[in-house]
């Protein structure tokens, strides 16, 4: 039997490399979703990892670090925030 392919569609999925069903501690939205000010997950609303191993939506974390009360510390462990490379 010969098959002639007339057209084909490709499908792909993506997810962040974080444990399943985890949520951002700041906005409490899934990492695979986006922070509460964004509409599209993915590159438009990326995650940020700290050297302390804690992860947040980048927008959530930057907004926290911009507040005076944050004193530049990770919201989880209150150590100075250093973005992991």
């Amino acid at each position: 039997m010969k098959v002639k392919i007339k057209s084909w569609n490709s499908v792909a999925i993506w997810k962040w490399d974080v444990p399943n069903e985890e949520v951002c501690g700041i906005c409490r939205v899934a990492f695979d979703g986006c922070c509460s000010t964004c509409k599209t997950p993915g590159d438009d609303c990326p995650l940020i990892w700290g050297e302390c191993s804690h992860v947040f939506h980048m927008h959530c974390l930057l907004r926290w670090l911009a507040t005076e009360g944050s004193r530049g510390q990770c919201p989880m462990d209150r150590k100075a925030w250093v973005t992991a490379k």
Partner: peptide
């Protein structure tokens, strides 16, 4: 006050 952090609820 000083120990507030956004992961609290």
């Amino acid at each position: 006050r000083e120990d507030w952090k956004p992961v609290l609820n």
